[in-house]
């Protein structure tokens, strides 16, 4: 293991044990340390009150090593941690100048006229969802995906890591439940498709190769059956042909089964961040129809956020609108 990984594992061990009331003595760079555990913790982790912490796998110690059952042992402690956090940033500078020009510069309106009608400071909640994504097939692919949505507009925003933000304060959300899970999942799925594209591509080409190999092989066997049929009676040859065909079908379905993709998306955490944002009201004119939409200027990004495509949920700066309902669509969906 690299020194970086050692340090990461040490910090993780230390933090999680301390959060459960243990006294941990494991200085940075040291190969091992000790933890004095609470009775509850020693019950969960096994062993006595004093737990030896090591990097190398050693019997009786908690070995912070990925080749051991370290992560499994700590999983129940992780499970006991909260999943939802709510924080706020009370004050932030909001742009005061007119928004016509920034809107025109940021967005490309593909089939409509858009007019800024006013601005208003609002408090907006942003939802940062973290998912664990796993694709299992003949091979496996895994990743951790983060999706942040403006809970009012539903558009995906590339905010900096909220968990790493300084100066946040506790926040009590007006509504305890969050309704952005479905949208966030949809966006996470889109990200998985992008990130796993090379992996899927490799699987597809391997499957094509294996399908072809099977087909060629069994077709050649069928040809041999036909060619060799002169000396055999027709019934025998026919029976042989049926066996080969049956086996091809069986092997092909086995192959398809082997390559079948099983995708698992697991939402891990939700951080709700409430902060000020500048709402920019716009009138959108599409043919005879007209509708009011709100854009958001984000003080953390110091930029306008994209609009949410009503069809695929992606964020869009090049926006087309539907004819009657004047709903925004990304360029791809609006084509």
């Amino acid at each position: 293991m690299s020194a970086d990984l050692h340090e990461r594992l040490r910090q993780f061990t230390r933090t999680i044990l301390e959060r459960r009331g243990a006294l941990v003595e494991w200085p940075e760079g040291a190969d091992e340390g000790w933890a004095m555990l609470t009775p509850e913790l020693s019950g969960r982790l096994g062993g006595g009150e004093l737990l030896r912490l090591t990097h190398q796998p050693i019997e009786g110690a908690l070995s912070a090593n990925l080749a051991t059952d370290f992560l499994e042992r700590l999983a129940p402690l992780v499970e006991a941690e909260p999943r939802v956090a709510a924080v706020q940033i009370p004050e932030m500078y909001l742009k005061r100048a007119a928004m016509d020009e920034p809107v025109a510069r940021t967005f490309a309106w593909l089939n409509a006229k858009v007019k800024v009608t006013g601005t208003e400071a609002q408090r907006v909640e942003y939802h940062e969802w973290t998912f664990r994504a796993a694709i299992t097939s003949e091979d496996t692919w895994e990743d951790v995906i983060t999706v942040t949505l403006n809970s009012t507009s539903g558009s995906e925003v590339a905010l900096p890591d909220i968990l790493a933000l300084m100066d946040t304060q506790p926040h009590t959300p007006a509504n305890a439940a969050s309704d952005t899970c479905a949208s966030a999942t949809q966006r996470a799925a889109a990200h998985v498709e992008e990130r796993a594209a090379a992996f899927i591509g490799r699987l597809e080409s391997r499957l094509r190769r294996d399908r072809k190999r099977l087909k060629d092989y069994y077709n050649a066997l069928l040809r041999e059956t036909k060619e060799g049929g002169t000396n055999e009676d027709a019934e025998k040859a026919e029976a042989k042909r049926r066996v080969v065909e049956l086996e091809l079908r069986r092997k092909t379905s086995e192959l398809e089964e082997r390559y079948r993709l099983q995708v698992a998306l697991t939402p891990l955490t939700l951080v709700r961040l409430e902060m000020p944002a500048l709402a920019v009201q716009c009138d959108v004119f599409r043919k005879q129809a007209r509708k009011q939409h709100t854009l958001y200027w984000n003080p953390l990004l110091t930029a306008l956020e994209p609009m949410r495509c009503a069809r695929c949920g992606a964020g869009a700066f090049a926006v087309a609108f539907t004819d009657d309902t004047v709903e925004p669509q990304c360029a791809a969906c609006g084509r």
């Binding site: 941690e81 909260p82 939802v84 968990l163 891990l268 955490t269």
Partner: peptide
């Protein structure tokens, strides 16, 4: 979801 916390450290550990 369970309960809501103002301390994101636990969430950091999960991630």
């Amino acid at each position: 979801a369970g309960g809501i916390t103002a301390d994101p450290a636990g969430l950091r550990l999960r991630v």
